[in-house]
């Protein structure tokens, strides 16, 4: 498989009011690979993800400049509709946030927004997405019960299924396993490894070992900057920057 760029990001800066929260980020995100982003708390990982699907547009305090090309097209061009963009780039937040509705309705939320009404098609989508998120077997008998009644790990996989049902191009996950036990974590990791065949995946994680386990490429963020970026095995064995070594070996706060 040849390496094709999904995202090309050039000289991206972001400011929260007057404070710079991202400093000239340059990165190529490769199709059908998992990009792991690691870095300490407050380094700008979440802000970075949210610029990629223009979710930051909703936060008036945030201003950005630079170029973000998705399949060669700048997503901040005036003719790009952020609503359509977000359908192509799904995001799973750090805390699982099911909408207060049934499991079934959570999964079909995205597709039904796009006007898909056909019940048969929707049911198919629900089954397929829940299967890809490794959740189907646990919930197949209670699709109509409230999503609020699922466990935390199940809720997070539901959130994953919910974006899979939109049939996006890119899946972004922001520390999806931070509140989860090792079993739920490994379920999500297996799901991701399967999913990268069809999707480009960006995984922000606080857990460096997780990046080492599943990411193909890894980027290290520190103090609003991207310090180092490369194939995961290189980053974890022979990093170029001393700060990367310090962080990976846990010598960092």
């Amino acid at each position: 498989m040849t390496d094709r760029s999904k995202f090309i990001i050039e000289n991206l800066n972001a400011y929260w009011s007057d404070v710079q929260v991202l400093r000239s980020i340059n990165i190529n995100i490769v199709s059908n690979k998992i990009l792991g982003i690691i870095g300490p708390s407050g380094s700008g990982k979440t802000v970075f993800l949210r610029t990629l699907n223009r979710l930051n547009d909703l936060v008036p305090e945030i201003r950005i400049d630079g170029r973000i090309l998705l399949d060669g097209k700048d997503i901040y061009d005036p003719d790009v509709d952020p609503v359509e963009l977000r359908k192509k780039i799904g995001i799973v937040f750090a805390l699982p946030i099911p909408l207060p509705a049934s499991i079934h309705d959570n999964v079909i939320y995205g597709p039904s927004l796009s006007g898909i009404r056909n019940r048969h098609k929707l049911d198919e989508l629900v089954e397929k997405s829940l299967k890809s998120a490794f959740l189907w077997d646990e919930v197949r008998d209670r699709l109509t019960t409230s999503a609020m009644r699922l466990s935390g790990g199940q809720q997070q996989r539901l959130c994953l299924a919910r974006i899979l049902a939109m049939e996006p191009d890119v899946i972004m996950l922001d520390e999806p396993c931070s509140g989860l036990d090792p079993i739920s974590t490994s379920q999500i990791e297996s799901a991701l490894t399967e999913l990268k065949k069809e999707y480009t995946i960006i995984l922000v994680t606080n857990n460096t070992k997780q990046a080492a386990r599943v990411a193909d490429n890894t980027a290290f963020f520190l103090m609003n900057e991207m310090i180092e970026y490369g194939p995961t095995d290189v980053i974890f064995t022979v990093p170029r920057d001393k700060r990367t070594i310090d962080y990976i070996t846990g010598r960092f706060g």
Binding site: L55, F93, G110, L113, I163
Partner: peptide, 12 residues
């Protein structure tokens, strides 16, 4: 957060 989820799923 509900609104954010909805927007992130491509809702207007």
């Amino acid at each position: 957060s509900y609104r954010e989820v909805s927007f992130s799923l491509g809702a207007t």
